[in-house]
Design a protein around this nucleic acid. Structure first.
Length: 255
DNA sequence: CCAAATGTTTTCCC
DNA sequence: CGGGAAAACATTTG
């Protein structure tokens, strides 16, 4: 998915329809409750907000919370906010539209082949942690609050209750940048590691954001395959499953 | 045919 | 109740 950076791109695309009235809604039965969501029909879009990986369409008749799962793409008026999603389909088959918000002449829809996107009315984001685009100070505080945790560093970065918006690609990219082994237990990190990690999250997230998304990093999709070499050390990257997710890291400079 | 895929939730177990 | 690991979920693509 759609990690926090992609969600931000979607947010900004949908925000172009602020002021419009929602005139019709259809929702895939697996991805949301159409009957419930239809209650925002005739509401006017007042704002489009983002919380981590969620995009909220705020209307005068309620909020539609959108989560894009692994392969959801938000498209406004046939203009895909992101043309290509690495593990989504290259195609844009209308059969995979899971929610369609008609707004007069305009349309906001989410095309999601894998059907893991979710839509809810008046979502509660109170359990989400700080946003991935927060200040260094807030990031450092969040990390410190997890300093006792014994699970892998990577797993902690992926915990949405701690930092909302970091996903698999960003987490790998951050740890590659911070030169920290993703498998290390979080409670083994030194004071220096915490500083470096804070710095890396802040910098990597903003850099990739500027470049256009989570997939534009040094250990991005192009290099996420067996046999690929570390762009820094030239040795073969390690592929492991950590915290349940495919993880690539450099056995030389990450420790 | 098989494996793997930018994710969250549920279940089971300490 | 608080982790943490593993399985479940649904579908397409290489």
């Amino acid at each position: 998915m759609p990690e926090g950076l992609e969600a931000e791109i979607y947010r900004s695309a949908a925000a172009t329809l602020v002021g419009r009235k929602v005139t019709a809604i259809s929702v895939d039965s697996l991805c949301g409750d159409e009957h419930q969501l239809r209650s925002v029909i005739n509401g006017r879009i007042e704002d489009v907000a983002r919380h981590g990986k969620f995009v909220d369409i705020v209307t005068t008749r309620g909020v539609i919370g959108m989560h894009f799962g692994m392969t959801g793409r938000l498209i406004v008026d046939e203009l895909a906010a992101i043309d290509r999603l690495e593990y989504g389909s290259a195609r844009d088959d209308r059969r995979w539209d899971r929610i369609i918000l008609q707004c007069g002449n305009s349309v906001i829809r989410v095309n999601d082949p894998r059907r893991w996107s979710r839509y809810s009315l008046d979502p509660d984001h109170s359990s989400l942690g700080i946003d991935l685009l927060s200040s260094k100070r807030a990031l450092a505080t969040a990390l410190r609050s997890a300093s006792h945790r014994t699970s892998a560093v990577k797993g902690v970065l992926l915990d949405q209750h701690l930092i909302a918006g970091l996903g698999n690609l960003l987490a790998d990219e951050v740890l590659f940048d911070a030169a920290i082994d993703p498998a290390r237990s979080f409670d083994s990190l030194s004071e220096q590691n915490h500083l470096t990690l804070t710095e890396s999250i802040f910098r990597v997230v903003r850099t990739l954001g500027r470049r256009g998304g989570s997939h534009t990093g040094r250990v991005g999709p192009a290099i996420r395959r067996v046999g690929a070499l570390c762009p820094i050390d030239g040795v073969e990257l390690q592929r492991r499953t950590i915290a349940g997710r495919t993880t690539f890291s450099c056995p030389v400079h990450q420790s």
